[in-house]
């Protein structure tokens, strides 16, 4: 098997953490391979380990055991700074509560990562305008997040995640705070972007709509993959 065709490879991934003094086995040996350009969803009930798995994959959390390769790079071999730079350059994040920086405008929020990357002003401006057009927020660059609707904020979050062209987008319950119409619109948009840009999308969700739209649904239960269904 060609390892280069995978964005994510996990091997016997395990993670325990303590909650109120009780040890919780959040992830209990997950073996997962996500191919490039996939549009996949990790589903499962609350406490099944979805968010923990996403945190491990993105390098936000360190596994107790097992290995993770992202774009063929072993995360455990990276230093804190390398990991931080790797996330900046290769992963886009979309969160449930949008988590835009409230004191920055739409444009500043989107270009934040590019500023960290040291992208030229002209280039940043061009990319921001392009991505705003893609997510349907043209002309809103000077607005602050608090003046936007939930759907618009999530569009900004999607734009922020995608603007620097990462190979992987990790979305943790991205539609949880949105109504079904807005969720549907956003999912269609993300699927279109997945097809046009080739970026890999991995969701963690309860949302049936995402499960329907996803081409692959991985079901987690008690920290283990219970089912891995690839649709035609």
């Amino acid at each position: 098997m060609n390892q280069n065709e995978f964005v994510i490879i996990t091997d016997s991934l395990k993670k325990n953490y303590k909650e109120n003094g009780i040890e919780v086995k959040a992830v209990r040996g997950v073996n997962l391979k996500i191919k490039k350009r996939e549009f996949s969803a990790i589903v499962g009930p609350s406490g099944s380990g979805k968010t923990t798995l996403l945190n491990l994959i993105s390098g936000l959390d360190i596994p107790d055991d097992g290995k993770i390769w992202l774009n063929n790079k072993l995360l455990s071999e990276m230093s804190g700074k390398e990991l931080s730079d790797f996330r900046r350059d290769h992963i886009g994040f979309i969160f449930q509560a949008y988590n835009l920086i409230p004191v920055l405008t739409v444009k500043e929020n989107i270009e934040y990562i590019m500023l960290l990357q040291g992208v030229e002003k002209k280039e940043r401006h061009k990319k921001v305008l392009n991505i705003l057009r893609e997510v349907g927020l043209e002309g809103m660059e000077t607005r602050v997040p608090t003046k936007l609707s939930g759907g618009q904020q999530q569009r900004v979050a999607i734009a922020r995640a995608m603007v620097s062209n990462p190979s992987l987008i990790l979305a943790d319950e991205p539609t949880a705070n949105l109504d079904s119409k807005t969720s549907g619109e956003l999912l269609n948009m993300m699927r279109r972007l997945n097809e046009t840009t080739g970026m890999t999308f991995l969701f963690s969700t309860h949302d049936k709509m995402i499960m329907e739209k996803a081409r692959r649904v991985i079901t987690l239960k008690d920290g283990l993959i219970e089912k891995d269904e690839i649709k035609d």
């Binding site: 936000l60 700074k81 900046r88 350059d89 988590n99 990562i113 960290l116």
Partner: peptide, 16 residues
């Protein structure tokens, strides 16, 4: 706190 978590997640280094 969450915001700092997000900033770090998106690649803001500890120094920044």
């Amino acid at each position: 706190m969450f915001e700092f978590g997000v900033l770090k997640a998106v690649g803001t280094g500890a120094f920044n």
